[in-house]
Computed example of a mutant assay.
Amino acid sequence: MEKFKAAMVLGGVGDALGFRNSSWEDYASGKTIQKELKQLGGLEKLVLDEENWPVSDDTLMHMATAEALTSDYWSLEDLYREMVRLYVSAVEKIQGRRPDPATVEGCLQLKPNNYILAWHTPFNEKASGFGAATKAMCIGMRYWQPERIENLVEVSIECGRMTHNHPTGFLGSFCTALFASFAIQGKPVVQWGRDMLKRLPMAEEYCRKTIRHMAEYQEHWFYFEAKWQFYLEERQIAEDGENKPAFPDHYDVEEMDKTYRRWSSEGRPGRRGHDAPMIAYDALLGAGSNWAELCSRAIFHGGESGATGSIAGCLYGLMYDLNNIPKGLYEKLENRERLEHLGEALYRSSKEEK
């Protein structure tokens, strides 16, 4: 239970650190961010509070997803209707926190008063962003057992395409949910990427089964997979995931920014559904249990650092809990008590059969 609570809280911590009240997300240079961090006294000296270090829309949408998953639903359709209700009500809350445009647009297209089509949104050419990935880790926490993989696939895809109805977007939610389940199962991190690709056919089969938008999906489907194949080959991670990843001998913040930009689709690291989870995953591979090193790699870089920080923080919490985290980073965190409550509720719900 403590790791579930830590995951929800550290997702918020990673988000708040990367977001820095919207200022650090404007920076293209991790070197500039790390220089400012040093001027603030370093990571150990920071005290995150609601006024100066608020969470972004990433955490608020993740909380909304977790609220739905821990509600008293009787079927997955009821779960989706509850997600719709909570996402629509979240639109007003996320204003002023520089939300992902696709998240806002998707929420406005949901139909809470339509019982049958409430969660059906149109295909959106521009909905390939990170917002689906950052709200879905809790789905993997709810359905973490290997025998619940079909639930995880379905819920993560439906949740993702409510707001990001584009394969690069909703495959991001499938990816982060799956990684969360792997973390709880204790699967070695180096195996996650390859094992995720092995399960991609399940996501495609589910989309075929639901019929909607398959012509549009087919046109864009393989971008996500191709980017991940390229990444895994660059890190020389074998098919069986038994080897150590290969990092450059010289890998400072400038080289890291350069690498992340190469993985991105538009030169802004973490902006899309494929590279936000990718950067978080790469940081976990490189940092192990070292929290400060994880922050350097997953948060203090140029681009969408709040998105990559929220994913990496949540997954780190599922593996290592709060033992190595400076208390100043989470004791006064915005919504901390609610995040802890949701972590506990997810733990209890994951033990129940539905």
Results as ranks from 00 to 15, higher is better:
3 K>V: 00
4 F>R: 02
8 M>K: 01
8 M>L: 13
10 L>P: 00
11 G>R: 01
12 G>R: 00
13 V>Y: 00
15 D>F: 01
17 L>H: 02
20 R>E: 13
21 N>D: 10
22 S>G: 05
23 S>M: 12
30 G>Y: 11
38 K>Q: 15
40 L>W: 10
51 E>D: 10
55 V>R: 01
64 A>Y: 03
66 A>V: 10
66 A>E: 07
67 E>G: 04
74 W>D: 13
75 S>F: 07
76 L>N: 10
79 L>V: 14
82 E>Y: 05
84 V>H: 04
85 R>C: 01
86 L>R: 15
91 V>F: 10
96 G>L: 11
98 R>E: 09
102 A>G: 12
102 A>R: 05
104 V>Q: 12
105 E>A: 13
109 Q>V: 02
110 L>Q: 10
110 L>A: 09
124 N>G: 14
131 G>R: 00
134 T>R: 01
139 I>V: 09
140 G>E: 02
144 W>R: 01
145 Q>D: 10
145 Q>R: 15
147 E>N: 15
149 I>L: 14
159 C>T: 06
160 G>L: 03
162 M>W: 08
163 T>S: 14
164 H>V: 04
172 G>C: 09
179 F>W: 07
184 I>K: 02
187 K>Q: 10
190 V>K: 13
192 W>L: 01
193 G>L: 03
194 R>G: 11
197 L>G: 03
200 L>F: 08
201 P>V: 04
203 A>R: 02
207 C>Y: 00
217 Y>I: 03
218 Q>V: 03
218 Q>H: 12
218 Q>D: 06
226 A>W: 13
228 W>R: 01
229 Q>V: 03
231 Y>R: 15
239 E>F: 12
242 E>D: 11
246 A>Y: 13
248 P>N: 07
249 D>S: 12
252 D>E: 12
254 E>Q: 07
267 G>E: 06
267 G>Q: 15
268 R>I: 14
269 P>H: 05
270 G>T: 05
283 A>W: 02
286 G>A: 15
286 G>M: 10
287 A>K: 05
289 S>P: 10
290 N>P: 07
291 W>A: 06
292 A>C: 08
299 I>S: 03
305 S>Q: 05
309 G>T: 09
310 S>G: 11
312 A>H: 06
314 C>V: 01
317 G>L: 03
327 K>Q: 11
328 G>H: 04
332 K>P: 00
332 K>Q: 14
337 E>G: 13
339 L>I: 08
339 L>A: 09
339 L>T: 00
341 H>Q: 06
341 H>F: 06
341 H>A: 12
341 H>S: 15
345 A>C: 08
345 A>E: 11
348 R>M: 10
348 R>C: 07
350 S>W: 09
353 E>Y: 13
